[in-house]
Design a protein around this nucleic acid. Structure first.
Lengths: 188, 188, 188, 188
DNA sequence: TATGAATGAGGCTTCATTCAT
DNA sequence: CATGAATGAAGCCTCATTCAT
């Protein structure tokens, strides 16, 4: 294995080891110091692998997305109806699985960074992420514009669920998907 | 005028004087020091009127909403069609007016706080805000669930417009509203 | 009543109204602001009657001592034996009465000021206070040096009771007094 | 030398370097800033070694006690009579040596903290300190209760010497010790 | 006489970042 | 490579004191 690969693997490991910390404490309340302790490495070492805190969340998002992709493709085979397929696609927001709940929290932290400290890199990554999801949705419902709308709407529901007193995210998403599929059918 | 009223007016004035600063620099990058200088008062004076930084954004949101309400009710009279009325309701996201653009930015800052440092007070305020908008929408389209969906979706579009490389917020919202109104009509 | 008397009365009233606050929160943790609120007057008014925080505790001590003197002279009549008389003299440290407990706390605060911010005025007051007690003791046991020793020792016990994990102040004082009286008798 | 030892040594050195500052200016009037400058280190570095200001006085007391113990054991060998031994034990309050005078001042500061900001840690430390002294006294005079009384009384004298206009601490302590030893003899 | 709004100095503490080992 | 001690800038907040009303 070459040096670059080695470095990349370590980078990923460091990021992953901080996953729960980010999910629990939130991006803003975590210091480089805490991250180093959690990762079991020296503070200086963090800077060997990352530019800054955002960079770690960034790597974390990438890791989680990779894992997520694998899972999604597996799940997709089981799903039969379009509805089921779409649910599987948005499993991040629907699952009660503890790991996914952590990933959901990480995504929230990622969105906070997108909103508050929008570096080109992170904006580009978010754009690609959205494109990927929309493309997957398009594969299911064969309509780009509708796919984009669905994606953005579900993010809107996610924001709502994080900034309101009570919000049944699952119900909102499922009701919405059902309606969208109905419209889609009718429009054909 | 009694003392409480005086204090309230000064509170509002301080908050408003920091409006542009918040819009330009963002909640996280602003210090009490900067706020005091911008407001032309002493650092200590800030604490005579506000509990903390969040409290200032909070007051600012309230001020802007009050101004916004007045404006909306004026605009509403001019609007004839349902479509126009809804556009006027979401003028915050559609207008090119410089003041409104600043208000839009403040709302973004508010959402960032909602997502990252969710105090009960702020979550409650956001909940009430959404309820108000949904209620206004309901007055127009006579459908609570659809109103809620429209609101959350538009917030989703707003988030998208703030976290993606290119995003035509106006187009997305208008297309969406048109579709929704069409569905609504058909469903009757 | 002349102006000076009026001022003195108000001074005493303000000080007394802050008695419980000082006893509960301690000299160091109380701000002029809190004192003004507790006394039900304006912050500026404090400065009309007192030079600073120490000055208030000073006035408070004076008030309490005046009350204390009256009480002591009453109590003294009831006491028969020398032992009883001395106990009555040090009632501040022996009584379980709620008011006296508060006075004891005030005296502690006073000692803290004596130790940490010794102004001439406060040192002089403390010196006079000790002289008075020693004189009263001397009236009882007819021995100046022993009286001084007893006084200082009991202050030592009081300090101990405030800076150690467990300390039975009452027992220490009473045992000590008994021993001293025994020595005294024997020495005659 | 392991890292913990290194850190401990530095901790002690920082504390000791602030010794004179504490003795001269007093705990309450010293800021972390001043301490950092005096110790010749950065403000942030203070927090690498201490939790807070109190923690520094705490370490200082420990250092001084350690030094003091060594000295006492040496002095004890020279002392012949019980009286001399006890004087050596309370050398802190009797010596005219400049270093000891500083230590006496530090102990005063320590007592002020005990009285005014009594954390469990500091109260426990003071309790242990007293226990140690009483135990040493007991070794000399073979009487626990009397030892405790002597200790508390001498603290009382010390307080008196710090809060009264004129007070001959040495005379008070020596007279007292002589009397106590006399009583003790007689009681046998 | 009484007030309390206004203030800015100064307190404590955190933290990203550097750099010598 | 890896480290973590050292730092000082910068943040938040408190408060005694002043002064115009």
């Amino acid at each position: 294995m070459d040096n670059l690969s080695k470095k990349n693997i370590k980078r990923k490991n460091i990021a992953k080891s901080c996953c729960t910390l980010f999910a629990n404490d939130g991006f803003l309340d975590i210091s480089i110091s805490k991250l180093a302790i959690t990762a079991g490495i020296g503070k200086g070492t963090i800077y060997e692998y990352f530019e800054n805190k955002e960079d770690i969340v960034f790597e974390l998002m990438t890791c989680l997305q990779e894992d997520y992709d694998d899972k999604f493709h597996l799940n997709l085979k089981i799903a039969v109806t379009k509805e089921e397929k779409i649910y599987k696609l948005f499993d991040l927001f629907l699952s009660k699985d503890e790991n996914i709940l952590i990933q959901k929290e990480i995504y929230k932290q990622f969105l906070i960074i997108c909103m508050s400290k929008p570096s080109d890199k992170i904006i580009k990554y978010n754009t690609n992420l959205r494109d990927k999801y929309i493309s997957l949705l398009e594969n299911i419902i064969n309509n780009y514009k509708q796919s984009a709308k669905i994606y953005d709407t579900i993010i809107g529901f996610f924001i709502a669920s994080n900034s309101l007193e009570k919000y049944d995210l699952e119900l909102c998403i499922k009701t919405f998907i059902k309606t969208e599929l109905k419209i889609y059918k009718e429009n054909i």
